[in-house]
């Protein structure tokens, strides 16, 4: 109490001054039109600035959520495009408009983990059996193919990357109808080899490589990469072709798993074929 009195005795004059000035300030700001305008204008400038900062911070915190929702949106659009292409190729656009269920369904997924610089590279996706992922489905990103599902658990799944010595994907050269296999032999990042293109084929550097659609993993006409170099193999009947990927696999963080709805029939056909061969 004594301290309070001492404080008042020392600063009371200043406090009274502040008190009067604050009253004056309220009067000025509330009852003088021009001062009121200036005050509210500058107030809104500063609060606007603060509000913007707050919303920026909030947006940053929501980034993951926004990313995921955009990814989901992309998957819907990509699904439309893929299915449209399939129908369009067979001149069945009308059917595409009227179809109840489309053959290809995309399952968007984040990539949980990846290895990139080994001989056999894998991705781990953050979705699994519970989300409808099955073994053998193809995985693509927005710029091209990524790999094939190798094994699935309840909530995670492993992907064999195309940058894996075991990977083998059926592709074709766009608009030219030559088919070959895309493999990874030379172990250089983002460079693959295209095999089994016969020497009589007319190819040139820069030709686009797309998926053939002859497997149940990938729909036709998904871009893969372009031819960066080729030479005739000595003594063989094929070209040795280097393919540069469109996809920068190092930087992708989201991918789509392709689910072909009607693939059960084809799968049983394939497996019965294999059985026949084995017999």
């Amino acid at each position: 109490m004594r301290n309070l009195l001492l404080f008042l005795a020392k600063y009371g004059h200043f406090l009274l001054f502040l008190f009067f000035e604050i009253i004056c300030f309220f009067l000025i700001v509330n009852f003088n039109s021009s001062q009121k305008d200036i005050w509210s204008h500058s107030l809104s400038l500063y609060t606007g600035n603060v509000k913007e900062r707050i919303s920026n911070a909030n947006n940053y915190l929501k980034l993951q959520e926004v990313n995921d929702s955009l990814h989901l949106e992309n998957s819907v659009l990509l699904q439309e495009i893929i299915n449209y292409k399939v129908y369009n190729k067979d001149n069945q656009y009308q059917n595409f408009e009227q179809a109840d269920s489309l053959p290809y369904r995309l399952i968007p997924s984040r990539i949980c983990d990846k290895t990139l610089h080994l001989r056999n590279n894998y991705f781990t996706l953050c979705k699994g059996q519970n989300h409808g992922i099955k073994k053998g489905m193809g995985v693509i990103s927005k710029n091209g193919i990524v790999g094939i599902i190798k094994s699935v658990s309840d909530n995670y799944s492993d992907v064999i990357l195309i940058l894996n010595t075991q990977s083998r994907i059926s592709v074709s050269i766009k608009n030219k109808n030559y088919f070959g296999n895309l493999v990874w032999r030379n172990n250089t990042f983002n460079k693959l080899n295209l095999e089994a293109i016969p020497k009589y084929a007319e190819i040139s550097i820069g030709d686009t490589i797309v998926t053939s659609g002859y497997s149940t993993s990938f729909p036709p006409d998904i871009q893969v990469g372009k031819i960066s170099a080729f030479e005739a193999s000595p003594g063989g009947g094929d070209y040795i072709i280097d393919v540069e990927l469109f996809n920068n696999i190092e930087t992708i963080s989201h991918s789509f798993v392709i689910d072909l709805q009607s693939n059960q029939e084809i799968d049983t056909l394939y497996s019965s074929d294999i059985k026949d061969q084995q017999l």
């Binding site: 200043f14 000035e21 009253i23 004056c24 300030f25 009067l27 700001v29 003088n32």
Partner: peptide, 15 residues
């Protein structure tokens, strides 16, 4: 007709 303006200036002068 300028509530507060003259008062603010005069109080500051007195201060």
């Amino acid at each position: 007709h300028s509530p507060g303006v003259h008062a603010a200036a005069l109080v500051l002068m007195a201060f």
